[in-house]
Design a protein around this nucleic acid. Structure first.
Lengths: 213, 213
DNA sequence: TCAAAAAGTAAGTAAGTACTCACTTATCTT
DNA sequence: AAGATAAGTGAGTACTTACTTACTTTTTGA
């Protein structure tokens, strides 16, 4: 096991220390899960005593919840549709789906710790799962679903349940990320750039739902 | 927390008891992970003392490994391509992909405990992940990959990297299962039968990779 | 400058933890 | 019926866990 010290052993302002403990704990929880991480490990890795950890957080559960809240509410994890609005207006299907996938893949790659945290939380049945889902995922289903519905009315896409289309597409890139993060870290099965992956996924999906002439 | 007793408190044959403990522990590990499950819980749920658990398994780690081995090597978890061979020979693309997805979706639904165990093992970095991947997943990539390559040569599919196609398709149904098991158990976002899901996924994928005339 | 507020901790506690040992009880064989 | 064998356990051990208390050290602001 690798010990992980952030420097700055000197006295810190309360807020700073709090944030530092959160950062450290986040890393440890994402690696070992809730019950797999001890308050002792968190203290040591933060360079303080356990007593100090409990000065800032009433108990382990609260620390965990604070991390999840902090993460779920922060804008670290970007809305994958933020860069896609203009393409949706124009009806540029490829750019919509390509950028959605690329954006997501990049986020996942950058923030694997959060991905792992989400998985741990889901397995442990933590409330964050619901929060994250309701505030984040369902909004994507809605907005992309609406886009697909519109394009169907315009005669561009054939008549499939938009929700199934969204699930199919999200499945492609989320599963790809999970492969890279969890199951096939060395990418033995498939090594491919995010750009190429996004391109392939978008192309397959679009050809899969477009009307033929 | 729900207590879970298998009946039969009476004395059992050694093999039987061993199997029973494995079953019980499997359920608990799949729910709470390795470090989230105590040997005490396993003993109580099995209706024996902790000492008995340790009579059958040298330590907790060995019990865990035995479960994983047992599961990974058993044929509980069916090869999703077993029912698909004849369709591959005939070149019936739809039946190949439809049955592959349907078979997988049914397995996942029946054996959510194993799915959860796999996720826990992956997050914990357990060796099972590699075993399962190398013996199970990579064989699917190979066989389906070969099928796609053949159909490309026959001029039926356009020229995409077969591995990317496999990843896209597996992504669709694995992600769908993970949604149902982990993130959206009440299926608020998308409630759909396995048959309908398999049909949609297969159709989208195939139209996505078929050559247009 | 100096007291009050804030940061930090050594040294605990009580309840768990994985795991062991010496022992009892049931079943099987002859 | 009786000894051998196998199933099972009560009561521990040594250690870890989350969390507390009473205390010290540093910083701050009037």
């Amino acid at each position: 096991m690798i010990k992980f010290h952030e420097q700055a052993n000197s006295r810190m302002a309360g807020d700073e220390r709090r944030q530092q403990i959160i950062r450290v704990a986040m890393k440890l929880f994402s690696e070992h899960g809730f019950s797999g991480t001890t308050t002792r490990q968190i203290a040591v890795a933060s360079g303080v005593s356990e007593a100090t950890v409990f000065k800032y957080f009433a108990n382990k559960e609260e620390l965990y919840a604070d991390i999840l809240d902090h993460k779920a509410c922060s804008h670290d994890f970007q809305d994958p549709l933020s860069l896609v609005g203009e393409y949706m207006e124009k009806g540029d299907d490829y750019q919509v789906f390509y950028n959605m996938a690329l954006n997501a893949l990049r986020n996942h790659e950058e923030d694997t710790a959060f991905m792992r945290l989400l998985m741990h939380a889901a397995l442990e049945g933590h409330e964050l799962t619901r929060m994250f889902f309701e505030s984040f995922v369902s909004s994507i289903y809605e907005r992309i679903g609406n886009y697909i519905r519109r394009r169907q009315k315009e005669g561009a896409f054939r008549d499939v349940d938009p929700k199934v289309v969204v699930r199919s597409f999200i499945g492609m890139f989320v599963h790809h990320s999970l492969n890279n993060i969890l199951w096939d870290k060395e990418q033995k099965l498939l090594k491919i750039s995010n750009e190429k992956a996004a391109e392939s996924f978008a192309t397959i999906l679009l050809d899969g739902i477009r009307k033929k002439d």
